[in-house]
Design a protein around this nucleic acid. Structure first.
Lengths: 168, 168
DNA sequence: CAGCAACTATAGCCAGGTCAATATTCCCCG
DNA sequence: CGGGGAATATTGACCTGGCTATAGTTGCTG
């Protein structure tokens, strides 16, 4: 009966555990600044984008959200003054989400603590070669498993520079 | 501005990416068998428990769910015939969730494919020493970060043999 | 043994997200 | 042109899970 002790299982279990621990730790800090995890991710995505703006669809593609999910998140964040909507001049179907000054400020309030947590809970726990090995192995898996080659994935996944998520 | 290229950030980004890829891949397979991720996890937890049963509270502790969450999941699964409720003879406050024959059968239908995915997407992509390094590094982080020592965590986290999650 | 605090499961309400349907706009091809 | 199909954002219906209140049960303690 103990299929449950297979080597892969324990490795994946660890992966899930670490992911869960980091997620909840991050979320706790975000909450101190009145942000949810997705809101933080939206802010970072916008902050690092060319004009501090991104089309709704692209934002959806860069996060784990669906397009309607993005609509609702942006609704909330607009209500809170963190972002604004802007009509796209070249394509009237599209609209941009733009990060506001308040949004940038909020992000700058959160980031230092975020980085500190990463240092404390993650990088600081590993000697450089362990970290290197970890990154190498993960990259290996990621590349092999890249959504494109498989069924069950509806993401476009063409060239899409899906950068490593900053945190969440 | 580019705080975003810090070494820890890319590592965590990778971790999140791999986790997301595996999760969606698993979920897709579960769905083929009309199961959600949490339902699969409940089935495995029950299947590997002494009498094929677990108190609601313990089930909550072993999963990512709250107790009310467990109540609802068990509601659904009982409706679908995968589990049953059983009164606890020694403590009338408690009740057990028991996996049924149908539940065991469903689990056995899902498991082979689940293991195959793990092999294909994960262990099969890594040479033994990479896998070993990965596990080592993750364990290092996990142990350092174990919920107990930190604020923001309300889990009891006393002795609780929180085994590595089988998959989800 | 009486009362009180802790524990257990559940129900109500809410936040947040997906899916399907819709309206608008764009683009391509006849 | 111009009509049909793809793309885009939004909305409504629904689902899921968390938090909190509630009711029942237990066991300790004075």
């Amino acid at each position: 009966m103990n299929v449950f002790d297979a080597p892969g299982i324990t490795a994946i279990g660890l992966l899930y555990e670490v992911h869960a621990a980091l997620s909840t730790r991050f979320a706790a800090q975000f909450e101190e600044h009145k942000l949810s995890t997705v809101e933080f991710e939206v802010l970072t995505r916008l902050a690092r984008s060319p004009q501090h703006q991104l089309r709704m669809t692209d934002l959806a593609a860069q996060t784990t959200l669906s397009t309607s999910g993005v609509t609702r998140v942006i609704d909330r964040m607009e209500r809170d003054g963190l972002v604004t909507r802007r009509a796209c001049p070249s394509d009237r179907r599209s609209s941009f989400a733009v990060i506001t000054a308040a949004g940038l400020q909020r992000l700058n309030e959160v980031l230092p603590g975020h980085l500190r947590i990463i240092e404390e809970w993650f990088t600081g726990q590993l000697d450089p070669e362990s970290l290197q090995a970890l990154v190498g192995a993960l990259r290996q898996v990621r590349d092999a498993v890249h959504p494109c080659a498989t069924a069950g994935s509806d993401s476009k996944c063409d060239d899409e520079t899906k950068e490593p998520e900053p945190a969440a």
